[in-house]
């Protein structure tokens, strides 16, 4: 009676949850880096990341709820905390992450945006206007508070799968890191997409490329040991890896995820950034290239989750 229980809703949730975690993480990093005196490129990254971070994960949480047997029973998840269940830990992590990222989003609104937002409130909700506080000074504290939670959300999406001992495709200690770094690089990609729209955001793109290269290199060096260790592991793991080594997910994994979704954008960003650092050349600012690389990263991140969710459920101890 083996069936695929977790389908597209879960794939999308894992992607959107990771995306939000990545956006928040990069935004929080930029918050720590920026200096209050000068409007620096870090500020624009931090603002855009903070403004975007809460929304994907909220949509993702909605998908999770609708994946349940009966959506209206979701509140039972909040009546329990079971520290041995990754899903229970994740539920609470998501609650805190949603809260912190929402408040952080509010903290990054400009005074004009805030006033416009409160002006739009219908009369019935007019009492909410008293919350029109300026919480700009909280930004660093919120970043400090949210950073570990965003890392937690990024890791947890992988632990959720990795903690299942009966699915050898998932049950390695590498899946959590793989998902984390993929999540961080998708967050970077969305920020690159968002900032490349502007006329000249050279310093922003340089910083984002640098971060993104780090995340993707780490991701690549997790994929490699995942494959090598899998081949050197017990029979069940070797069998499960056949799903991507000659099985139904082979082309999707090697060509579309590893080739187009990870290595191609990595090479693009390296070619863009390395000459600037090594030979001090001027940054080759190309919006189509930046957007192209970002879109490839996003599709790669989505495919990674797609492959893992479906292949994992097809793997089993024989």
């Amino acid at each position: 009676m083996k069936t695929i229980e977790w389908g597209f809703l879960i794939v999308n949730y894992l992607f959107l949850g990771g995306l939000s975690a990545g956006l928040f993480f990069v935004s929080a990093l930029a918050t720590f880096l920026y200096k209050l005196e000068e409007p620096s490129p870090y500020t624009r990254i931090a603002r855009l990341g903070a403004l975007l971070a809460p929304w994907p994960v909220m949509i993702g949480c909605g998908l999770l709820v609708f994946d349940l047997g009966r959506w209206y029973r979701f509140y039972k998840l909040f009546l329990h905390l079971r520290l041995v269940s990754p899903m229970s830990i994740g539920t609470w992590l998501l609650v805190f992450f949603n809260l912190v990222s929402l408040v952080n989003c509010y903290a990054w609104l400009t005074a004009a945006q805030r006033n416009a937002l409160f002006a739009k409130l219908p009369r019935a909700l007019a009492f909410l206007r008293r919350f029109n506080y300026d919480i700009d000074p909280w930004r660093r504290h919120l970043a400090f508070l949210g950073l570990p939670i965003s890392v937690g959300v990024g890791i947890y999406t992988g632990v959720l799968l990795g903690a299942v001992q009966s699915r050898p495709f998932w049950n390695t200690n590498l899946v959590a890191q793989l998902f984390l770094f993929s999540a961080l690089s998708t967050g970077c990609a969305v920020l690159i997409l968002g900032l490349a729209r502007r006329e000249r955001s050279v310093p922003e793109l340089k910083l984002l490329y640098g971060l993104d290269i780090c995340f993707m290199v780490l991701e690549f060096f997790i994929v490699l040991p995942y494959l090598i260790h899998g081949q050197l592991s017990v029979q069940a793991v070797q069998d499960s890896l056949k799903l991507i080594l000659g099985g139904p997910f082979t082309i999707l994994f090697w060509v579309f995820f590893l080739g187009l979704g990870l290595l191609t954008p990595l090479v693009i960003e390296l070619l863009e950034l390395v000459p600037v650092i090594v030979s001090n050349r001027e940054f080759h600012y190309s919006r189509p290239i930046a957007a192209g690389a970002a879109l490839l990263i996003l599709s790669g991140g989505f495919l990674l989750r797609y492959i893992f969710v479906f292949a994992g459920q097809m793997s089993a101890i024989q």
Binding site: M1, E5, W6, G69, R70, R73, M87, S166, A316
Partner: peptide
């Protein structure tokens, strides 16, 4: 009463001994 129908247990079971009751929304 407590089952939310997330089906995590079905994925975790090495024997595939569980099934999801669509009519009740529970495992």
């Amino acid at each position: 009463c407590d089952c939310v129908g997330c089906r995590y247990c079905m994925i975790a079971c090495p024997y595939n001994a569980r099934f999801f009751r669509e009519d009740k929304g529970v495992v």
